[in-house]
Structures are given as structure tokens and as C-alpha cells.
Simulated scan of single mutants.
Amino acid sequence: MNTPDREHRHGYSHDKDRYSARLKRVEGQVRGIQRMIEEDQYCIDILTQITAITSALENVGLSLLDEHLKHCVAGAVHSSADGASGDAHTAVDAKVEEAMQAIKRMVKS
């Protein structure tokens, strides 16, 4: 996994608060499911909540993937076009491969 220096801004940086709020909502939903199980709630109601959480996490993942493609991959393409060096093309290939691996993991889950 890449660990860029602290100066590097990711594509989602401008929306960190929104992502954080969405994930806190998911966290609350998970706690709600824990409570439902402790209270012996109906199975289907719990499964419905799990489906909602799964959907919410998938949406966060798709938004992050979109930001990655628009920012990181597009940035590598622009750098490649500006520099036109072999290293720049290798960086583009690496970013595209990284995105494809993330897509494959998302599709499998």
C-alpha cells in the first residue's frame, strides 16, 4: 500500500468532513445492530439493517474510487503528458493497476 508523505493531498481531502460524517452514521448503525441483537430483535429486521450498512459502505467506497480516478489517476496521466518520459508512463500504469485491484476487491466483497 502506498504511504505518501504528509504534504500530499488526496482527491477526497476537500470532502473529509462529509466522509467522516457518513462513516460515523455507519458506526451508529453498527451499534444499533449490536443493540438489536442484545435485545433479541427479529432476524429480518437485523438483516435489513446489515443491508443498509453494506450499501452505505459501498457508496463511500465508490465515492472514494471516483475521487481516486479523478485525482490520482488523472494526475498521473497529466504528469505523463507533460513529461512524456518512460517513468511517467510507468506511474500511469501503476495508478491504473492500483485502481483495478481496488475495483476487483470491491466487486468480490
Rank of each mutant, 00 (worst) to 15 (best):
I37W: 08
A74E: 12
A52I: 08
N59F: 12
R18E: 14
D5Q: 10
L62N: 14
G83Q: 15
Q41I: 03
S109E: 06
M106E: 05
D40G: 14
P4V: 04
K95N: 04
C43K: 01
H68C: 06
L47T: 12
L62P: 01
A21Q: 13
M1R: 01
A102R: 08
H68G: 08
L65Q: 08
Y19N: 03
I53P: 00
C72G: 09
A56C: 07
I37Q: 11
I50N: 01
I53L: 06
I44D: 10
D40S: 15
V92A: 08
H89A: 14
Y42D: 06
Y19G: 05
C43M: 10
D17F: 09
A94F: 00
A81R: 09
D40R: 12
V73N: 01
E58S: 13
A99P: 01
A81M: 09
R9G: 00
G28A: 03
G61N: 10
V107I: 13
K16I: 15
T51C: 05
R22V: 07
H10L: 15
K24M: 04
R22P: 02
D82N: 05
S20C: 13
V26G: 05
A99L: 14
D82E: 10
N2C: 01
M100G: 01
Q34D: 12
Y19S: 04
I44K: 04
K16M: 10
L69P: 00
E7D: 11
T51M: 07
N2M: 06
K70A: 06
K108D: 03
Q101V: 11
H14D: 06
E97I: 03
D45Y: 13
S79M: 07
E27M: 02
C72W: 01
S63Y: 04
D45A: 12
V96I: 15
S20H: 10
G28I: 04
D87W: 03
R18D: 11
S85V: 12
L62Q: 10
K95Y: 00
L64E: 06
K95I: 05
L65Y: 09
